[in-house]
Write a protein that binds this DNA or RNA. Sequence first.
DNA 1: GCATATACGGCACGACCGTTCGCTTTCGGG
DNA 2: CCCGAAAGCGAACGGTCGTGCCGTATATGC
Lengths: 207, 207
Amino acid sequence: MPRRSASAVDADRARTLREAVDLASVVGLEGLTIGSLAERLQMSKSGLAGRFGSKEQLQLAALDLAAEMFANVVYDPAASAPAGRRRLLAICDRWIAFLGEPCFRGGCFLTTASVEFDARPGPVRDAVRATMRRWLRVLEDEAATAVRQGELPAGTDPAALAFTINALAVGTNCDFQLHRDASALARGRSAMEALLAPGPAPLAAAA
Amino acid sequence: MPRRSASAVDADRARTLREAVDLASVVGLEGLTIGSLAERLQMSKSGLAGRFGSKEQLQLAALDLAAEMFANVVYDPAASAPAGRRRLLAICDRWIAFLGEPCFRGGCFLTTASVEFDARPGPVRDAVRATMRRWLRVLEDEAATAVRQGELPAGTDPAALAFTINALAVGTNCDFQLHRDASALARGRSAMEALLAPGPAPLAAAA
DNA sequence: GCATATACGGCACGACCGTTCGCTTTCGGG
DNA sequence: CCCGAAAGCGAACGGTCGTGCCGTATATGC
Protein backbone atom coordinates (compact mmCIF):
# COMPACT_ATOMS: atom_id res chain seq x y z
CA MET A 1 0.00 0.00 0.00
CA PRO A 2 1.15 3.51 -0.61
CA ARG A 3 2.34 5.24 2.46
CA ARG A 4 0.57 8.41 1.45
CA SER A 5 -2.76 9.07 -0.14
CA ALA A 6 -3.04 8.76 -3.87
CA SER A 7 -3.70 12.45 -4.30
CA ALA A 8 -0.59 13.39 -2.34
CA VAL A 9 1.43 11.06 -4.52
CA ASP A 10 -0.04 12.64 -7.62
CA ALA A 11 0.71 16.13 -6.37
CA ASP A 12 4.26 15.14 -5.59
CA ARG A 13 4.63 13.58 -8.99
CA ALA A 14 3.29 16.71 -10.63
CA ARG A 15 5.73 18.85 -8.71
CA THR A 16 8.55 16.58 -9.77
CA LEU A 17 7.50 16.75 -13.38
CA ARG A 18 7.15 20.50 -13.31
CA GLU A 19 10.72 20.75 -12.15
CA ALA A 20 11.75 18.26 -14.81
CA VAL A 21 10.11 20.29 -17.55
CA ASP A 22 11.69 23.48 -16.31
CA LEU A 23 15.11 21.88 -16.27
CA ALA A 24 14.66 20.19 -19.62
CA SER A 25 13.57 23.43 -21.24
CA VAL A 26 17.08 24.68 -20.61
CA VAL A 27 19.31 21.67 -21.18
CA GLY A 28 17.03 19.60 -23.40
CA LEU A 29 15.20 16.38 -22.77
CA GLU A 30 18.37 14.38 -23.30
CA GLY A 31 20.46 16.72 -21.21
CA LEU A 32 17.99 16.29 -18.39
CA THR A 33 19.69 13.84 -16.03
CA ILE A 34 18.28 11.88 -13.16
CA GLY A 35 21.05 13.11 -10.92
CA SER A 36 20.54 16.81 -11.51
CA LEU A 37 16.80 16.53 -11.17
CA ALA A 38 17.15 14.54 -7.96
CA GLU A 39 19.50 17.12 -6.53
CA ARG A 40 17.03 19.86 -7.37
CA LEU A 41 14.26 17.99 -5.60
CA GLN A 42 16.56 17.04 -2.71
CA MET A 43 16.03 13.40 -3.42
CA SER A 44 18.29 10.48 -4.10
CA LYS A 45 18.88 9.33 -7.63
CA SER A 46 17.44 5.91 -6.97
CA GLY A 47 14.35 7.29 -5.33
CA LEU A 48 13.63 9.43 -8.35
CA ALA A 49 14.43 6.72 -10.83
CA GLY A 50 12.11 4.37 -9.01
CA ARG A 51 9.20 6.68 -9.62
CA PHE A 52 9.42 6.58 -13.37
CA GLY A 53 11.20 3.35 -14.07
CA SER A 54 13.52 4.72 -16.70
CA LYS A 55 14.77 7.98 -18.06
CA GLU A 56 12.75 7.54 -21.21
CA GLN A 57 9.52 7.27 -19.25
CA LEU A 58 10.50 10.39 -17.34
CA GLN A 59 11.00 12.15 -20.66
CA LEU A 60 7.60 11.01 -21.88
CA ALA A 61 5.90 12.09 -18.66
CA ALA A 62 7.60 15.49 -18.81
CA LEU A 63 6.48 15.88 -22.39
CA ASP A 64 2.91 15.09 -21.43
CA LEU A 65 2.91 17.65 -18.67
CA ALA A 66 4.44 20.29 -20.92
CA ALA A 67 1.74 19.70 -23.51
CA GLU A 68 -0.92 19.98 -20.85
CA MET A 69 0.54 23.22 -19.51
CA PHE A 70 0.74 24.61 -23.01
CA ALA A 71 -2.92 23.84 -23.60
CA ASN A 72 -3.85 25.36 -20.26
CA VAL A 73 -2.04 28.59 -20.96
CA VAL A 74 -2.59 29.02 -24.68
CA TYR A 75 -5.73 27.22 -25.72
CA ASP A 76 -8.00 27.23 -22.70
CA PRO A 77 -8.21 31.01 -22.25
CA ALA A 78 -8.92 31.32 -25.97
CA ALA A 79 -11.62 28.67 -25.93
CA SER A 80 -14.13 31.16 -24.61
CA ALA A 81 -13.82 33.24 -27.77
CA PRO A 82 -16.31 32.40 -30.51
CA ALA A 83 -15.11 29.61 -32.77
CA GLY A 84 -13.39 30.55 -35.98
CA ARG A 85 -11.27 33.57 -36.73
CA ARG A 86 -11.86 35.25 -33.38
CA ARG A 87 -10.71 32.19 -31.51
CA LEU A 88 -7.69 31.86 -33.76
CA LEU A 89 -6.77 35.44 -32.97
CA ALA A 90 -7.17 34.77 -29.27
CA ILE A 91 -4.95 31.71 -29.57
CA CYS A 92 -2.27 33.71 -31.34
CA ASP A 93 -2.50 36.39 -28.70
CA ARG A 94 -2.08 33.90 -25.88
CA TRP A 95 0.60 32.08 -27.81
CA ILE A 96 2.77 35.15 -28.21
CA ALA A 97 2.25 36.01 -24.57
CA PHE A 98 3.31 32.48 -23.69
CA LEU A 99 6.46 32.84 -25.78
CA GLY A 100 7.29 36.09 -24.03
CA GLU A 101 6.83 34.72 -20.55
CA PRO A 102 7.12 30.98 -20.82
CA CYS A 103 6.23 28.83 -17.84
CA PHE A 104 9.75 27.43 -18.04
CA ARG A 105 13.12 29.11 -18.21
CA GLY A 106 14.22 27.69 -21.53
CA GLY A 107 11.41 28.85 -23.74
CA CYS A 108 8.82 26.71 -25.44
CA PHE A 109 9.45 23.17 -24.31
CA LEU A 110 7.68 21.58 -27.24
CA THR A 111 9.84 23.38 -29.77
CA THR A 112 12.98 22.37 -27.93
CA ALA A 113 11.89 18.75 -27.72
CA SER A 114 10.79 18.74 -31.33
CA VAL A 115 14.10 20.02 -32.65
CA GLU A 116 16.04 17.79 -30.32
CA PHE A 117 14.36 14.57 -31.32
CA ASP A 118 13.30 15.19 -34.89
CA ALA A 119 16.14 13.04 -36.19
CA ARG A 120 16.21 10.46 -33.43
CA PRO A 121 13.74 7.61 -33.90
CA GLY A 122 12.13 6.24 -30.78
CA PRO A 123 9.16 6.60 -28.46
CA VAL A 124 10.01 10.17 -27.49
CA ARG A 125 10.10 11.31 -31.07
CA ASP A 126 6.82 9.56 -31.73
CA ALA A 127 5.23 11.25 -28.73
CA VAL A 128 6.49 14.68 -29.78
CA ARG A 129 5.16 14.11 -33.24
CA ALA A 130 1.77 13.00 -31.97
CA THR A 131 1.53 16.00 -29.65
CA MET A 132 2.43 18.42 -32.39
CA ARG A 133 0.08 16.82 -34.86
CA ARG A 134 -2.76 17.03 -32.35
CA TRP A 135 -2.14 20.72 -31.75
CA LEU A 136 -1.90 21.48 -35.44
CA ARG A 137 -5.17 19.69 -35.88
CA VAL A 138 -6.79 22.04 -33.40
CA LEU A 139 -5.53 25.01 -35.36
CA GLU A 140 -6.63 23.42 -38.59
CA ASP A 141 -10.16 22.77 -37.37
CA GLU A 142 -10.45 26.32 -36.15
CA ALA A 143 -9.21 27.62 -39.47
CA ALA A 144 -11.73 25.46 -41.31
CA THR A 145 -14.49 26.90 -39.17
CA ALA A 146 -13.31 30.40 -39.94
CA VAL A 147 -13.34 29.69 -43.67
CA ARG A 148 -16.76 28.08 -43.46
CA GLN A 149 -18.08 31.14 -41.67
CA GLY A 150 -16.67 33.40 -44.37
CA GLU A 151 -14.25 35.08 -42.01
CA LEU A 152 -11.31 34.19 -44.20
CA PRO A 153 -10.92 34.13 -47.99
CA ALA A 154 -12.82 31.27 -49.56
CA GLY A 155 -9.79 29.65 -51.16
CA THR A 156 -7.89 29.43 -47.91
CA ASP A 157 -6.50 26.00 -47.09
CA PRO A 158 -7.01 25.42 -43.35
CA ALA A 159 -4.05 23.07 -43.13
CA ALA A 160 -1.76 25.59 -44.79
CA LEU A 161 -2.99 28.34 -42.52
CA ALA A 162 -2.42 26.20 -39.45
CA PHE A 163 1.04 25.33 -40.71
CA THR A 164 1.96 28.96 -41.24
CA ILE A 165 0.71 30.08 -37.85
CA ASN A 166 2.68 27.34 -36.18
CA ALA A 167 5.78 28.09 -38.22
CA LEU A 168 5.61 31.74 -37.22
CA ALA A 169 5.27 30.78 -33.57
CA VAL A 170 8.21 28.41 -33.72
CA GLY A 171 10.34 30.95 -35.53
CA THR A 172 9.34 33.67 -33.10
CA ASN A 173 10.28 31.47 -30.18
CA CYS A 174 13.70 30.73 -31.60
CA ASP A 175 14.45 34.36 -32.33
CA PHE A 176 13.23 35.59 -28.98
CA GLN A 177 15.06 32.93 -27.03
CA LEU A 178 18.30 33.58 -28.86
CA HIS A 179 18.29 37.37 -28.84
CA ARG A 180 15.96 38.10 -25.93
CA ASP A 181 14.59 41.01 -27.89
CA ALA A 182 10.92 41.72 -27.33
CA SER A 183 10.55 43.13 -30.84
CA ALA A 184 10.53 39.51 -32.01
CA LEU A 185 7.25 39.06 -30.14
CA ALA A 186 5.73 42.14 -31.73
CA ARG A 187 6.83 41.02 -35.17
CA GLY A 188 5.53 37.52 -34.68
CA ARG A 189 2.23 38.93 -33.53
CA SER A 190 2.01 41.27 -36.51
CA ALA A 191 2.72 38.47 -38.93
CA MET A 192 0.03 36.30 -37.38
CA GLU A 193 -2.51 39.09 -37.42
CA ALA A 194 -1.75 39.89 -41.03
CA LEU A 195 -2.25 36.24 -41.81
CA LEU A 196 -5.64 36.32 -40.14
CA ALA A 197 -6.76 39.63 -41.57
CA PRO A 198 -10.31 39.40 -42.83
CA GLY A 199 -11.31 40.55 -46.26
CA PRO A 200 -10.78 38.98 -49.62
CA ALA A 201 -7.01 39.45 -49.94
CA PRO A 202 -5.53 35.98 -50.44
CA LEU A 203 -2.61 35.66 -48.07
CA ALA A 204 0.07 33.15 -47.34
CA ALA A 205 -2.39 30.39 -46.65
CA ALA A 206 -3.35 29.66 -50.23
CA ALA A 207 -2.93 26.11 -51.51
CA MET B 1 57.17 21.26 -38.46
CA PRO B 2 54.03 19.67 -39.79
CA ARG B 3 54.60 16.32 -41.29
CA ARG B 4 52.23 17.14 -44.14
CA SER B 5 51.68 20.23 -46.18
CA ALA B 6 49.44 22.90 -44.75
CA SER B 7 46.83 22.39 -47.46
CA ALA B 8 46.61 18.68 -46.75
CA VAL B 9 46.14 19.43 -43.07
CA ASP B 10 43.41 21.90 -43.89
CA ALA B 11 41.64 19.42 -46.15
CA ASP B 12 41.79 16.80 -43.46
CA ARG B 13 40.46 19.24 -40.92
CA ALA B 14 37.63 20.20 -43.24
CA ARG B 15 36.71 16.57 -43.75
CA THR B 16 36.72 16.05 -40.01
CA LEU B 17 34.50 19.05 -39.47
CA ARG B 18 32.09 18.02 -42.18
CA GLU B 19 31.61 14.73 -40.41
CA ALA B 20 31.24 16.54 -37.09
CA VAL B 21 28.53 18.79 -38.49
CA ASP B 22 26.69 15.86 -39.98
CA LEU B 23 26.77 14.02 -36.69
CA ALA B 24 25.84 17.04 -34.63
CA SER B 25 22.89 17.80 -36.88
CA VAL B 26 21.38 14.57 -35.58
CA VAL B 27 22.40 14.40 -31.94
CA GLY B 28 23.01 18.07 -31.29
CA LEU B 29 26.21 19.98 -30.64
CA GLU B 30 26.29 18.81 -27.05
CA GLY B 31 25.43 15.23 -27.96
CA LEU B 32 28.34 15.26 -30.37
CA THR B 33 31.06 13.34 -28.56
CA ILE B 34 34.74 13.06 -29.26
CA GLY B 35 34.52 9.30 -29.08
CA SER B 36 31.75 8.84 -31.60
CA LEU B 37 33.30 11.31 -34.03
CA ALA B 38 36.69 9.62 -33.69
CA GLU B 39 35.16 6.24 -34.39
CA ARG B 40 33.46 7.60 -37.48
CA LEU B 41 36.75 8.98 -38.73
CA GLN B 42 38.62 5.82 -37.71
CA MET B 43 40.81 7.83 -35.43
CA SER B 44 41.70 7.64 -31.79
CA LYS B 45 39.95 9.90 -29.31
CA SER B 46 43.20 11.53 -28.28
CA GLY B 47 44.26 12.20 -31.83
CA LEU B 48 41.01 13.95 -32.54
CA ALA B 49 40.99 15.88 -29.29
CA GLY B 50 44.52 17.07 -29.98
CA ARG B 51 43.41 18.73 -33.18
CA PHE B 52 40.91 21.03 -31.57
CA GLY B 53 42.11 21.32 -28.01
CA SER B 54 38.73 21.00 -26.42
CA LYS B 55 35.23 19.96 -27.20
CA GLU B 56 34.05 23.53 -27.10
CA GLN B 57 36.51 24.56 -29.78
CA LEU B 58 35.33 21.63 -31.85
CA GLN B 59 31.78 22.87 -31.46
CA LEU B 60 32.77 26.37 -32.51
CA ALA B 61 34.68 25.08 -35.52
CA ALA B 62 31.75 22.90 -36.56
CA LEU B 63 29.43 25.86 -36.24
CA ASP B 64 31.70 27.94 -38.45
CA LEU B 65 31.78 25.29 -41.13
CA ALA B 66 28.02 24.85 -41.02
CA ALA B 67 27.51 28.58 -41.47
CA GLU B 68 29.89 28.57 -44.39
CA MET B 69 28.12 25.63 -46.02
CA PHE B 70 24.78 27.31 -45.51
CA ALA B 71 26.03 30.44 -47.22
CA ASN B 72 27.49 28.41 -50.06
CA VAL B 73 24.26 26.54 -50.70
CA VAL B 74 21.67 29.20 -49.98
CA TYR B 75 23.16 32.63 -50.52
CA ASP B 76 25.86 32.20 -53.13
CA PRO B 77 23.61 30.81 -55.89
CA ALA B 78 21.16 33.61 -55.21
CA ALA B 79 23.81 36.31 -55.28
CA SER B 80 23.76 36.33 -59.07
CA ALA B 81 20.15 37.50 -59.05
CA PRO B 82 19.63 41.25 -59.15
CA ALA B 83 19.69 42.82 -55.71
CA GLY B 84 16.38 43.43 -53.97
CA ARG B 85 13.17 41.48 -54.28
CA ARG B 86 14.43 39.16 -56.99
CA ARG B 87 17.41 38.14 -54.91
CA LEU B 88 15.23 37.65 -51.87
CA LEU B 89 13.03 35.33 -53.88
CA ALA B 90 16.07 33.43 -55.08
CA ILE B 91 17.30 33.11 -51.51
CA CYS B 92 13.94 31.76 -50.37
CA ASP B 93 13.93 29.32 -53.25
CA ARG B 94 17.36 28.01 -52.39
CA TRP B 95 16.52 28.03 -48.70
CA ILE B 96 13.50 25.81 -49.12
CA ALA B 97 15.49 23.51 -51.36
CA PHE B 98 18.17 23.38 -48.69
CA LEU B 99 15.60 22.47 -46.05
CA GLY B 100 14.28 19.68 -48.26
CA GLU B 101 17.67 18.21 -48.96
CA PRO B 102 19.96 19.42 -46.24
CA CYS B 103 23.68 18.80 -46.53
CA PHE B 104 23.43 16.99 -43.21
CA ARG B 105 21.14 14.26 -42.01
CA GLY B 106 19.58 16.11 -39.12
CA GLY B 107 18.18 19.11 -40.93
CA CYS B 108 19.30 22.69 -40.62
CA PHE B 109 22.27 22.68 -38.31
CA LEU B 110 21.96 26.31 -37.36
CA THR B 111 18.38 25.87 -36.18
CA THR B 112 19.35 22.87 -34.12
CA ALA B 113 22.29 24.66 -32.55
CA SER B 114 20.23 27.77 -31.94
CA VAL B 115 17.49 25.94 -30.09
CA GLU B 116 19.98 23.84 -28.21
CA PHE B 117 22.04 26.72 -26.87
CA ASP B 118 19.55 29.55 -26.65
CA ALA B 119 19.29 29.16 -22.89
CA ARG B 120 22.90 28.19 -22.17
CA PRO B 121 25.27 31.11 -21.82
CA GLY B 122 28.75 30.64 -23.13
CA PRO B 123 30.95 31.03 -26.18
CA VAL B 124 28.90 28.63 -28.28
CA ARG B 125 25.71 30.52 -27.66
CA ASP B 126 27.46 33.78 -28.47
CA ALA B 127 28.77 32.35 -31.72
CA VAL B 128 25.36 31.04 -32.73
CA ARG B 129 23.83 34.38 -31.98
CA ALA B 130 26.47 36.25 -33.99
CA THR B 131 26.03 33.91 -36.93
CA MET B 132 22.28 34.29 -36.91
CA ARG B 133 22.45 38.02 -36.52
CA ARG B 134 24.82 38.25 -39.48
CA TRP B 135 22.50 36.22 -41.69
CA LEU B 136 19.45 38.21 -40.66
CA ARG B 137 21.38 41.33 -41.50
CA VAL B 138 21.93 40.04 -45.02
CA LEU B 139 18.19 39.47 -45.41
CA GLU B 140 17.46 42.85 -43.91
CA ASP B 141 19.79 44.68 -46.27
CA GLU B 142 18.27 42.92 -49.22
CA ALA B 143 14.80 43.81 -48.03
CA ALA B 144 15.82 47.44 -47.62
CA THR B 145 17.09 47.46 -51.16
CA ALA B 146 13.82 46.01 -52.39
CA VAL B 147 11.86 48.68 -50.58
CA ARG B 148 14.13 51.41 -51.89
CA GLN B 149 13.62 50.12 -55.41
CA GLY B 150 9.87 50.20 -54.95
CA GLU B 151 9.53 46.44 -55.30
CA LEU B 152 7.78 46.16 -51.97
CA PRO B 153 5.20 48.36 -50.26
CA ALA B 154 6.68 51.63 -49.07
CA GLY B 155 5.80 51.13 -45.43
CA THR B 156 7.56 47.78 -45.23
CA ASP B 157 10.01 47.43 -42.37
CA PRO B 158 13.06 45.55 -43.70
CA ALA B 159 13.92 44.16 -40.28
CA ALA B 160 10.40 42.85 -39.79
CA LEU B 161 10.38 41.30 -43.24
CA ALA B 162 13.73 39.62 -42.60
CA PHE B 163 12.45 38.37 -39.27
CA THR B 164 9.33 36.88 -40.82
CA ILE B 165 11.18 35.15 -43.64
CA ASN B 166 13.58 33.63 -41.16
CA ALA B 167 10.77 32.59 -38.84
CA LEU B 168 8.99 30.86 -41.69
CA ALA B 169 12.18 29.05 -42.65
CA VAL B 170 12.83 27.91 -39.09
CA GLY B 171 9.24 26.77 -38.66
CA THR B 172 9.27 24.99 -41.98
CA ASN B 173 12.45 23.18 -41.02
CA CYS B 174 10.96 22.00 -37.73
CA ASP B 175 7.78 20.77 -39.32
CA PHE B 176 9.52 19.03 -42.17
CA GLN B 177 12.09 17.37 -39.93
CA LEU B 178 9.45 16.13 -37.56
CA HIS B 179 6.87 14.86 -40.03
CA ARG B 180 9.03 14.34 -43.13
CA ASP B 181 6.13 15.57 -45.21
CA ALA B 182 7.13 17.48 -48.32
CA SER B 183 3.96 19.56 -48.17
CA ALA B 184 5.66 21.54 -45.42
CA LEU B 185 8.20 22.71 -47.97
CA ALA B 186 5.50 23.77 -50.39
CA ARG B 187 3.64 25.63 -47.69
CA GLY B 188 6.75 27.35 -46.46
CA ARG B 189 7.55 28.39 -49.98
CA SER B 190 4.04 29.71 -50.56
CA ALA B 191 4.14 31.72 -47.36
CA MET B 192 7.47 33.26 -48.31
CA GLU B 193 6.30 34.10 -51.81
CA ALA B 194 3.11 35.67 -50.48
CA LEU B 195 5.25 37.73 -48.18
CA LEU B 196 7.34 38.92 -51.09
CA ALA B 197 4.45 39.53 -53.46
CA PRO B 198 4.87 42.85 -55.21
CA GLY B 199 2.11 45.38 -55.37
CA PRO B 200 0.75 47.71 -52.74
CA ALA B 201 -0.89 45.15 -50.45
CA PRO B 202 0.69 45.59 -47.01
CA LEU B 203 1.60 42.16 -45.76
CA ALA B 204 2.96 40.73 -42.56
CA ALA B 205 6.07 42.83 -42.69
CA ALA B 206 4.52 46.08 -41.53
CA ALA B 207 6.07 47.68 -38.46
C1' DG C 1 -0.58 -4.03 17.55
C1' DC C 2 1.02 -6.39 13.88
C1' DA C 3 2.04 -7.86 9.26
C1' DT C 4 2.74 -6.08 4.82
C1' DA C 5 3.20 -3.45 0.85
C1' DT C 6 5.79 0.25 -0.78
C1' DA C 7 8.59 4.40 -1.34
C1' DC C 8 12.98 5.92 -0.72
C1' DG C 9 18.10 6.14 0.51
C1' DG C 10 22.77 4.13 0.16
C1' DC C 11 25.64 1.85 -2.71
C1' DA C 12 27.88 -0.25 -6.50
C1' DC C 13 28.11 -1.53 -11.26
C1' DG C 14 29.50 -1.03 -16.15
C1' DA C 15 29.72 2.36 -19.69
C1' DC C 16 31.04 6.49 -21.55
C1' DC C 17 32.40 11.25 -21.09
C1' DG C 18 36.43 14.98 -21.91
C1' DT C 19 41.06 15.39 -20.99
C1' DT C 20 45.96 14.28 -20.23
C1' DC C 21 50.24 11.85 -20.39
C1' DG C 22 53.89 9.36 -22.46
C1' DC C 23 55.44 6.95 -26.64
C1' DT C 24 56.19 6.00 -31.48
C1' DT C 25 56.44 7.34 -36.05
C1' DT C 26 57.44 10.45 -39.56
C1' DC C 27 58.81 14.19 -41.97
C1' DG C 28 61.54 18.80 -42.97
C1' DG C 29 65.61 21.80 -42.00
C1' DG C 30 70.38 22.47 -40.57
C1' DC D 1 72.65 12.53 -42.28
C1' DC D 2 70.79 13.31 -38.28
C1' DC D 3 68.04 15.96 -35.12
C1' DG D 4 63.91 17.99 -33.49
C1' DA D 5 59.11 19.41 -34.16
C1' DA D 6 54.78 17.56 -34.41
C1' DA D 7 50.87 14.42 -35.25
C1' DG D 8 48.57 10.54 -33.75
C1' DC D 9 48.18 6.47 -30.93
C1' DG D 10 47.19 3.63 -26.56
C1' DA D 11 46.17 3.92 -21.97
C1' DA D 12 44.57 5.89 -18.05
C1' DC D 13 42.57 9.60 -15.24
C1' DG D 14 38.49 11.46 -12.44
C1' DG D 15 33.82 12.26 -13.13
C1' DT D 16 29.03 11.42 -14.35
C1' DC D 17 25.71 8.83 -16.63
C1' DG D 18 21.50 5.32 -16.16
C1' DT D 19 20.34 1.46 -13.68
C1' DG D 20 19.89 -2.24 -10.69
C1' DC D 21 20.10 -4.41 -5.65
C1' DC D 22 19.18 -4.30 -0.93
C1' DG D 23 18.10 -2.47 3.57
C1' DT D 24 14.91 0.39 6.00
C1' DA D 25 11.43 3.36 7.55
C1' DT D 26 6.57 4.14 7.32
C1' DA D 27 1.69 4.25 6.89
C1' DT D 28 -2.33 1.54 6.19
C1' DG D 29 -5.62 -2.74 6.39
C1' DC D 30 -6.43 -6.43 9.34
